[in-house]
Amino acid sequence: MSPLRRRLLFGAPLAVAAAGGAGFYTILRRMQDNKYDPHALPSPLIGKRPPAFTLPGAAGFQGFSNTDLLAPPKPMLVNWFASWCVPCLQEAGMLSVLARTGTTIWGINFEDTGPNLATYLAQNGNPYARIAADASGLTAINWGVYGVPETYVIDKTGIVRWRYAGALTLDVVKSTLDPMLKHYA
């Protein structure tokens, strides 16, 4: 066996193991830093306008349709939520902070009832400028929503730039949402 071949036979598995190790380390590291979520799904809506819909208002709020989202004065959030959803409750505080600091948030109340929504808002505060009701959940399917809460960033030309599934945390807001809102301002 030539020395080169011997070295290759010894080195190749070592190199494969080292490359694998480096890869796994990077993935775990990025997961720890909240930069990578293996469960996150890319939304096909990104780069497009939301699909056509017209939803009535809920709990005395004004509803909206896709045409109302065509040209917001500054980038805004559309937040899918429900009074029965536990992670929605977890992000309620974060949404209030965002609303207070001048971010426009419109809510779509998912498979919920008016009285339950009213109680929820009374207990947890209301960050929403408008709330539309998707009682059947069919508009959610057209948006590709697969659970609540989901948050979408819509830029000034009405195009969806970001989708986040799950409760918004301070980490996510600082690392991703804030820079995004600034970028599209």
Partner: peptide, 8 residues
Amino acid sequence: MVQRYGIF
């Protein structure tokens, strides 16, 4: 389905 939820 793919149009709404992606190839996933």
